[in-house]
């Protein structure tokens, strides 16, 4: 069997990209984003992308770099407030945007990866989100039908992984990564640490390797923080 382990982001992406494809990208804000894969996708110049991601990075980092290069045609997101270029492109009509409530987006991806084509949720009933969608009553309450979501490619970021593709995420960098890993026709994981087969605690693997087609250790992780917020150190004495 051909191994899943790849040398770097460029090798991992070889042969999977095409113009007009849909890519899911894990992360919440800049936390847990596959930054090496995003940079490598920019280098390939692939275009007319539909990108499914909770946010769209910031100016100059994360998915923001694919906006700058004009490679994204459409975003499916829940919140894009951190990105000035996004606003400009959207308001000038150069970029399409589909807003999904965050929980609906997460569940659409979970459902897509689990073979569930549609589901009903209370979220968005009576709002713009429900327009044009089936609304049905269950047990006296109204629910809107949302579709499962899959992608041609899912790019995810984990902290630790092995050659089987088993993944473990770290703290809130988990976010959308586990569901996206299940919903890509091809899933590529970039990790910080590759460990030998057998080194991961089998009871605590977050994404089983079946979902991961290719895996590599990122060349570098900048792991930028959007809003560094601290408290004064003198509090420590009284805490």
């Amino acid at each position: 069997m051909a191994g899943k382990t790849q040398k770097d982001a460029a090798e991992a992406l070889a042969g999977v990209l095409f113009d007009g494809m849909t890519i899911m990208a894990g992360g919440f804000g800049l936390c847990g984003i596959p930054e090496n894969l995003i940079a490598a996708i920019r280098e390939t110049g692939v275009k007319n992308l539909t990108v499914v991601s909770n946010n769209c990075g910031i100016d100059g980092f994360g998915l923001g770099v694919l906006l700058e290069s004009g490679q994204i045609k459409k975003m499916i997101s829940s919140y894009v407030g951190e990105n000035k270029l996004f606003e400009k492109l959207y308001l000038s009509g150069e970029l399409e945007l589909e807003f999904n409530p965050q929980g609906t987006l997460a569940e659409r991806i979970r459902a897509g990866g689990a073979g569930i084509p549609a589901f009903f949720t209370k979220t968005g009933v009576g709002t713009l989100v429900a327009e044009g969608k089936e609304v049905r009553e269950f047990d006296g309450e109204l629910y809107v039908m949302e579709r499962g979501l899959t992608a041609d490619l899912a790019i995810v970021k984990a902290y630790t992984g092995d050659a089987e593709g088993n993944l473990v995420y770290r703290k809130t960098a988990r976010n959308f990564n586990p569901m996206m890993a299940t919903a890509g026709k091809v899933t590529i994981a970039e990790i910080e640490h590759l460990v030998p087969i057998g080194a991961l605690d089998k009871d605590n693997i977050h994404t089983p390797g079946i979902y991961v087609d290719r895996i590599f250790v990122g060349a570098s992780f900048e792991k930028r923080i959007e809003r560094v917020t601290t408290r004064p150190r003198e509090e420590k004495a009284s805490a």
């Binding site: 936390c31 929980g103 609906t104 991806i109 960098a173 586990p178 792991k223 923080i225």
Partner: peptide, 28 residues
């Protein structure tokens, strides 16, 4: 500060002994 540990406002935060982490699907 830990880049892997933020709140929904993207601010850095800390964990407690009782904390747990989960996916966005579990969260919602």
């Amino acid at each position: 500060e830990d880049a892997d540990l933020i709140n929904a406002g993207k601010q850095t935060i800390t964990e407690l002994d009782s904390s747990s982490y989960f996916s966005s699907a579990d969260s919602f």
